[in-house]
Simulated assay, not measured.
Amino acid sequence: MSKKLEAGDTAPEFHLPDDRGGTLSLADFAGKKLVLYFYPKDDTSGCTKEAIDLNGLKGDFDKAGTNILGVSPDSVASHVKFKTKHKLDLALGSDETKAMLETYGVWVEKSMYGRKYMGVERTTFLIGPDGKIAKIWRKVKVPGHAEAVLEAARALA
């Protein structure tokens, strides 16, 4: 892992299998705003709430010219099941190799009840149409997050 990404940095390119049987890359969103959010696991309480909140504002994000892409280390099959169960209309990328998670600095050592393990730190990147990172939310707390990201997306030219 190189230096920690900061606002103003060029967003690293990626290529991931998506939940529709295709591949997603940063280039697919060139010239558009992108909310790139990383979450730990499909169908867990916080991740489900975050996805539902973002999905609920999808029309507003669309009006703001902003795409949404969620990424976790879950399989494509898990993403399909998650989207179907919760009626989500968001693109989800699968990073089972964790290469993109590491590049974006969100695959980190975590600790729970004194046990250390590797996992995804809930993080959101707002990437501008120029491919540069406009804003980063680290260690996201889900309540109110989707609204804050929408507000920032609206403010981004």
Rank of each mutant, 00 (worst) to 15 (best):
F38G: 11
V106Q: 06
S94E: 03
Y37L: 11
H79K: 13
W107G: 07
K110Q: 14
D28F: 10
G93R: 00
G56Y: 12
L16H: 09
G93S: 06
D60P: 06
W137F: 14
G56V: 01
L88Y: 02
P12D: 06
A146F: 11
P40F: 07
A27N: 11
M118F: 15
L92S: 04
G22T: 13
D62S: 06
A64K: 01
E50N: 09
E121K: 14
K135N: 10
T48M: 11
Y117S: 08
D42I: 02
E109H: 12
V71Q: 00
V71T: 02
K141N: 15
D74F: 00
V142M: 08
G8P: 03
Y37F: 15
D53F: 07
Y113E: 13
L90V: 05
F29V: 06
E102C: 08
A99S: 15
V71C: 02
F14A: 02
E151I: 09
D28M: 07
R138I: 09
V71G: 02
G105R: 05
A157D: 15
L126W: 03
T23M: 15
K135R: 15
V140W: 12
P40K: 11
L26S: 11
K135T: 10
D18Q: 04
M112W: 13
A146K: 05
W137V: 08
K41W: 09
N67R: 05
I68Y: 00
S75N: 04
T44C: 06
E13F: 08
H79P: 04
R138D: 13
G70T: 02
E121W: 03
L36W: 04
T124M: 13
L90K: 01
A99W: 03
K141F: 08
D89K: 12
P40S: 10
A146V: 06
R138E: 14
Y117M: 09
K85W: 00
A153Q: 08
K132S: 08
